[in-house]
Amino acid sequence: MTRVVSATSSRATYAHWHLTPAVLALGYPWYLARFYDAAAAHHALSALAALAVVLAVPASAFVSLYSLGRQPLITSRDVILQRLAHFTFASPPLFVIVGVFLYLMKINGADARVWLGIWAAVLCAAMLALLTNPAVDKHAPAVRRLAPVRVMHGVASAAIILVFLFPHLGNHAVGILGADTHKAVMLVLRHLYRAGWIEPILIALFVFQIVSGLVLLLPKLGEKRDLLGTLQTASGAYLVIFIASHINAVFVLARYFGTDTDYAWATGLPGGLIADSWDVRLIPHYALGVWLILSHIVCGLRTVMLAHGVSMPRANAISWTLIGVTSLWAAVIVAGMVGVRI
């Protein structure tokens, strides 16, 4: 009897620990507000502390995902907790897309309250799902033929990378030299990816990536994963919402109203992202988004390497090296976006 009570208590503690990131996400808008207030008052240490709390939401979700993915036996409850953790990890772009939708509906000043309502509902749903699932069981993922989807996802990724993504991120990297330099490069590149027949194809490819990414992600929740495997699924979940948010902002919020989606628009110039209480949410959104999209590409390359017989240690070494290089690229982009100039 004592063992049963002890096991039940242990399982409850285990589930509660993995609910912590989602509970922390409830306060996400207020952490951002604290960051904005501290930055506006030029209290650097307070601003950095508040930003650390903001980033603690996706960081804690990632720790939860890694822990869950290392379990020797993946149960149905583990899968529920992983779904919640992936959703929590994507908090930065989720808060952005919520804000954009509310702005388009002309609902002002309600972002934090709507966010609180969304997360209260998500947490209630997660806890109900946990309570109605068996305490201990073996999760048996459905057998699916995903190889064709994986290949199409990779081919679409390669097309997006070559035609749009790397030129676009290269353009953003020169933003650290100034908005005028960025605009000069952008006007040249737009002749390629804004061509009348190319742009609709790119949009269709992005939509396909969102759908196919979800198809590939969900079965992985029942599989054991290492650190890079966790980074691949976490970044994929983040990018699903990030891409949807970005497309909505560019094609609905901006172009529909005749706004040029240039560097000044993206970075809130002339005031900058830090100087605006709404735009401040774009800092973690962009910072993590740029790094994660590059990391996701590297993780995808690792999958290809492993499928073609490259040893795990060698594939991991190459992947971590590439992540280190792309992290520098992402750091330059983000530095430029928050106002650093050289």
Rank of each mutant, 00 (worst) to 15 (best):
A331V: 10
L177F: 07
V211D: 04
L282C: 05
A159K: 04
Y28S: 11
A12K: 10
I274P: 00
A307L: 12
H172L: 05
H191S: 15
A85K: 03
A234N: 05
V280M: 08
L45E: 08
F35I: 10
A234S: 03
T2F: 04
N133Q: 15
I333H: 06
I198E: 01
S327T: 15
A249H: 14
W265Q: 14
E199C: 04
V240Q: 12
L131D: 15
L81P: 01
S327Y: 09
A12G: 06
F87G: 01
A184H: 06
M186I: 09
A22Y: 11
W320S: 06
E223M: 02
L292G: 08
H172G: 03
I97V: 15
I80P: 00
I274F: 05
P148Q: 07
I118F: 07
T233Y: 02
V338P: 02
R225A: 11
A287Q: 02
R225E: 11
A22P: 09
L123N: 11
G178C: 05
I198S: 12
L282T: 07
V100W: 04
S311H: 12
A49C: 07
I74A: 01
R302W: 11
L123Q: 12
M105I: 09
A331L: 12
T303V: 08
V23S: 08
G339N: 12
T321M: 11
A25R: 14
Y263A: 15
W17D: 02
E223F: 00
I342N: 02
V163A: 09
A7W: 00
V240N: 12
I118Q: 06
N316Y: 06
K220Q: 02
W197C: 01
A41Y: 04
R83D: 06
A47G: 11
V53F: 08
H43I: 03
W197V: 14
I203L: 08
A61W: 03
L273E: 01
T132K: 14
L55M: 11
R144I: 09
A90N: 05
G229D: 07
M186F: 12
G175A: 09
P270M: 13
S46A: 15
P200C: 10
G309T: 13
M186K: 07
I97S: 13
F101P: 02
G336Y: 10
A49Y: 00
V188G: 11
H285I: 02
A204C: 06
P92S: 07
A266N: 06
A287M: 04
A264I: 05
R281V: 11
L24T: 15
V252C: 10
D137H: 09
L253A: 15
R144P: 01
R194G: 10
L273F: 07
V53G: 07
H153N: 12
N316V: 01
P72C: 10
A41R: 08
P21F: 10
M305K: 12
M337W: 12
I118P: 02
G268H: 13
G236C: 00
A307V: 13
P93D: 01
L169I: 10
I243E: 01
R281A: 15
F164I: 05
Y14G: 03
L73T: 09
K220G: 00
V338I: 14
L169P: 02
L19S: 09
G109V: 05
S311F: 09
A147D: 07
I323Q: 14
L162G: 15
S235F: 06
V240T: 14
Y66C: 06
W291T: 14
V63Y: 08
A7D: 04
S91F: 06
L202Y: 08
V340E: 04
S67T: 13
L322P: 00
V188T: 14
V5N: 06
V211W: 12
V54G: 09
